[in-house]
């Protein structure tokens, strides 16, 4: 589904990703862990197509297409989704209108008809239950005045509506209390299927108790320095990142 080869990228002349290789197949959940500043969020942003980042080398194949050649909106329409670490507040843009516009642009790209406001409302009411959100959110401006937990739920709601093939969760657990974390993780688990895949970017092992990964990768200084199964996450939790740092410097 996603094949990353020797991806190198940076911002404002500073190289952050120094050669990433990763292969994600349908149905898999990959966790990417690592200390602060290791490049986890950069990887997520680069895959989503944030224009500020510069690609220095490497290639990314997504469902048989060159991902790096695509505009952010094309990536989304092809089925890539980034759940933002810091969801953006957009005053004056109604959440319901925003979601319906996004859904219909994606549907149009796939050759489907537009969804009517009535059908959209029926569908979204079901999705709201998934993240235990009140329908009143739909009439508020996108993320404006939302609490940290509400913003993250809103990201999962958008994922449920847009039904991506590959979802990248960028530190979705940060700033969440345990109850909100469970709601978000439950939502994600219900969306898992044999056809889609997830990349879960996180600093802590905690989220991985709820979203159980098939693979765990440790990112340090712009490179994946270790890969394993879910036991690697537990090991990191017990020993911290220091061992990784020491090994990388040796």
């Amino acid at each position: 589904m996603l094949t990353i080869k020797n991806l190198q990228a940076g911002i404002e002349g500073k190289t952050i990703l120094k050669g990433i290789d990763l292969n994600v197949k349908p149905g898999e959940v990959h966790a990417i862990m690592g200390p602060n500043g290791s490049g986890k969020s950069t990887l997520a942003q680069v895959l989503a197509g944030r224009p500020e980042y510069e690609i220095l080398a490497g290639a990314v194949d997504f469902l048989g297409k060159d991902l790096l050649e695509m505009a952010p909106e094309e990536r989304a329409r092809e089925g890539l989704f980034l759940a933002f670490q810091y969801p953006v507040e957009i005053p004056g843009v109604n959440t319901s209108y925003f979601l319906r516009t996004a859904l219909n642009e994606i549907r149009a790209y796939r050759g489907d008809t537009k969804m009517s406001p009535g059908d959209f409302l029926k569908m979204i009411r079901e999705k709201l239950k998934l993240v235990e959100m009140d329908a009143a959110f739909l009439n508020r401006s996108v993320n404006e005045g939302f609490s940290g937990g509400e913003k993250k739920r809103n990201e999962v709601l958008q994922m449920a509506v847009l039904q991506p093939r590959l979802a990248i969760l960028d530190e979705t657990d940060s700033g969440l209390d345990i109850d909100a974390l469970k709601v978000v993780a439950d939502g994600v688990n219900k969306l898992r299927s044999k056809d889609n895949a997830f990349i879960v970017v996180t600093h802590y092992q905690r989220l991985l108790n709820y979203i159980v990964p098939d693979f765990v990768h440790v990112l340090y200084d712009g490179r994946i320095v270790q890969s394993g199964d879910k036991s690697l996450a537990l090991q990191l939790e017990a020993n911290g990142y220091d061992a990784i740092k020491t090994a990388a410097m040796a």
Partner: peptide, 22 residues
């Protein structure tokens, strides 16, 4: 804001319209 809208599949032109209208 523009990137956020585009990351959800909304085309650049439309995203600009939405932002200015808002």
């Amino acid at each position: 804001g523009l990137f956020y809208l585009r990351a959800r599949g909304i085309g650049e032109e439309t995203a600009r319209h939405i932002m200015v209208h808002a």
